[in-house]
Design a protein around this nucleic acid. Structure first.
Lengths: 199, 199
DNA sequence: GGTATAGCAATACAGCTGACTTGGAAAAGG
DNA sequence: CCTTTTCCAAGTCAGCTGTATTGCTATACC
């Protein structure tokens, strides 16, 4: 047996290269040769780790969406002062908005991914599950708030989860398009939360 | 001089073909030959009307965004029973959500366009203007409502315009992804408007 | 009625794409 | 030592891409 290489690590390195290219030229604009060059490897080596372009795209998207989910869960779990439902929801929204350059890049790529999903039936289930999981996370917090009586009367946690997620999503798009400042987006989230929590 | 053809009409016909392809395979996935075939013309003829692919894309997007704007303005202007600000805002939101198959197609393509805009600096100004115009339309109605005292106390028309537009945008994405029923999206808009208008 | 020219069909072309094939280097196990 | 298998570099290939070129046809005008 010859030397064994950490496949997972190599794949992640390639995924990073693809991510960097996709952030400027878009997912579809990244050819195998481009990615290989960006990763500093040969086309042959890239193909050794990803037999097909589709496989490379799929792995990369799964990798980064897993990273994103992990970051969110970490934000929720980590002990910050007073992990109230409202504070948790604020943290999640902050994670979903393009407040930093890194988030901006990620959102730009993810938007390209969304388009891809809309045109490709096969990718839809995974994307749907991701959204539904996130929505569930928000709904959990809202339900806790409702039990504590912190929620504005008459609001349904499940519906408010959908509304907050949609709002954040829309605000993110606006910030990406430079028609809304990142700070203003966060301000609107806060104002929205103010209305949801016993305004 | 040989016979003269209505260039504008031919271009619009081609734009329609591109739109149909883009709705299933995405904007980038539509080659000149595909579009020509869909339009029932030769590649040569298509090139006679659009010297370059970029020109074709630009025309098509401008054409359909103009159509969309026209539809919205018509909805606002047309006399429906009691054109209150709230009713007008509801109509605009209904126009922006994927409630019909035609709207679904348009939104899918427009989302691809958004991604394209994010990766191409040159296209950004036009897209920004479109969003800002729409936001202005919403803000106008909210300002009228505020003058009438119909707005919930403490809400700023300009900020609420941003919030409503972002919410609609996010809801549209959710519906496209099949994680939200069209009717539920419209229901959430109504609930949202209920909170904005003197809840 | 000749002629200039818009309209268009057909083809050519260079470049890039993803996928495949071939061959060799290197190292772990027998 | 020697085989086996992984790793990977290089080249090849067919297919598609947008664009450019060429030339024919039909028609409106002088």
């Amino acid at each position: 047996m010859p030397r064994r290489v950490d496949h997972q690590e190599r794949r992640q390195r390639i995924a990073g290269a693809l991510w960097r290219i996709a952030s400027t030229r878009g997912l579809e604009g990244a050819s195998l040769r481009d990615v290989a060059a960006e990763a500093g490897i040969s086309l042959g080596q890239l193909q050794h780790y990803f037999a097909t372009r589709e496989e490379m795209l799929r792995f990369t998207l799964e990798h980064f969406s897993a990273l994103s989910g992990e970051r969110i869960r970490k934000r929720v779990a980590t002990g910050y002062p007073e992990p109230t439902p409202r504070a948790v929801l604020r943290e999640i929204a902050a994670e979903l908005l393009p407040l930093s350059e890194e988030q901006r890049v990620a959102l730009r790529v993810q938007l390209g991914y969304l388009v891809r999903v809309l045109h490709d039936e096969g990718l839809r289930p995974q994307a749907r599950e991701g959204v539904l999981a996130l929505r569930g996370l928000l709904a959990d917090q809202l339900r806790i708030a409702a039990e504590r009586g912190e929620l504005t009367a008459g609001l349904d946690p499940e519906r408010e989860a959908v509304r907050l997620l949609a709002l954040t999503d829309g605000l993110a798009n606006a910030v990406l398009l430079d028609v809304l400042a990142p700070g203003a987006a966060m301000g609107l989230v806060d104002e929205h939360l103010g209305g949801v929590f016993g305004g």
